[in-house]
Design a protein around this nucleic acid. Structure first.
Lengths: 209, 209
DNA sequence: GCCGGTTTTTACTCTCGATGAAATTCTGTC
DNA sequence: GACAGAATTTCATCGAGAGTAAAAACCGGC
């Protein structure tokens, strides 16, 4: 992979130089992970993106897997935090809160660097041990959503005929998959969010007659 | 990857022994592709699943990439064929036809071996040259869906406020992502299909008051 | 039970990429 | 302006996995 200028926020942030390099490496790992998958993520590529020599990575991480695991974990944590923060400020009906979560999830996924995307799209390829450690975090995140759906359902705002568990996964799928095709050329982020919100809410909403 | 009994239809089918071995290899490739991604697909693993020695693969394919490309192409072609067949028999409103397509797409993705899933989930990781060749086929497939949405829209059955292109991708995402989490333990295939149909159609449907 | 073609195997090469180790350059401190 | 530690590099090792080559096993006629 040809060395490219290095994506997003890198190097710019606060902290010691060392801390910034470290962040650059993790960001680069996420960047490569999203495009090449777990097995395809070569340290040499990560290094090129982060603008260091490959062995330098070992100053910060003791193995390739450790780096990858951190990149993935950071992504999920970030998504979760942003969604929780957004929800904390949201009042309104349960369906409104769902709308807020949809927006937060999408904007994290599509703009906040490649971390969230790496976390979400790479997981299935991770070796089992790593995946197991990740699973709990994943479950926790889905739990937030499950809660939202449950509230909405309790409030009678959700179609009774839908299996809430399945419906939730279908909805999350719709959101997650956007990372697969969206780029700013395909329409504005706001446009996607609006479309997704409408689709999700109308899809879930209790019968409309 | 420990040699496992070999998935689905393999070896069973019609044709000369040679043809059956070949099919087994392609099926095995799809099987591994789905779980490990493009870079993670080792011929030794494919061979183990197909129950041959790794070099035997070279009797049928001249390179690893050629094998992978075929596995992916077969998957997409299969999905397309099944959806087209299902649509050919479907009458009813445009939204009904969409429902039919949703069912066909999902059942291909979730049951007809790993091919379709490999085709859909692996593509983004493929090296550019291979991907380019695949892109056209992919576009053709999406075109079918675009047509369905357009018809429904023309018939006034779809919410005018939705951007049809974006909405379609969101819908396809919801369907494609199911391959990421579904297994028979999570509910019946029919259950998923029903939920997805409802969600998709209600999500797209023209305003309901 | 022998033969030419087909299919599969065993034994071997070659390259790439993770990682290790030592050498080198920075950086701030006195 | 020399020193201790931090950060990073260059050089070297090593195993894994793609691909090759030649030998072996299999298979349907005869």
């Amino acid at each position: 992979m040809p060395a490219s200028p290095a994506p997003s926020s890198e190097g710019t942030g606060r902290g010691t130089k060392s801390a910034r390099t470290r962040r650059r490496v993790v960001d680069a790992a996420a960047h490569v992970l999203v495009r090449r998958g777990y097995a395809g993520t070569r340290l040499s590529d990560v290094a090129a993106v982060a603008q260091v020599q490959a062995p330098a990575i070992y100053y910060y991480f003791s193995s390739r897997d450790e780096l990858i695991e951190e990149a993935v974990a950071v992504g999920l944590a970030r998504a979760r935090t942003l969604v929780e923060e957004a929800l904390a400020e949201a009042d309104g009906s349960p369906l409104d809160r769902l709308r807020v979560a949809v927006a937060a999830h999408l904007s994290t996924l599509l703009t906040h660097s490649d971390h969230a995307a790496a976390a979400i799209r790479t997981v299935p390829q991770l070796p089992e041990s790593m995946r197991a450690r990740h699973r709990q975090a994943e479950r926790d995140y889905v739990e937030i959503w499950r809660g939202l759906v449950a509230e909405a359902r309790a409030a009678g705002e959700i179609d009774r005929d839908l299996d809430p568990g399945v419906a939730l996964m279908v909805v999350l799928g719709a959101l997650n998959w956007t990372a697969e095709w969206w780029d700013p050329g395909r329409g504005s982020l706001e446009g996607i969010i609006a479309t997704a919100q409408r689709l999700v809410v109308d899809g879930l909403a209790a019968d409309h007659e």
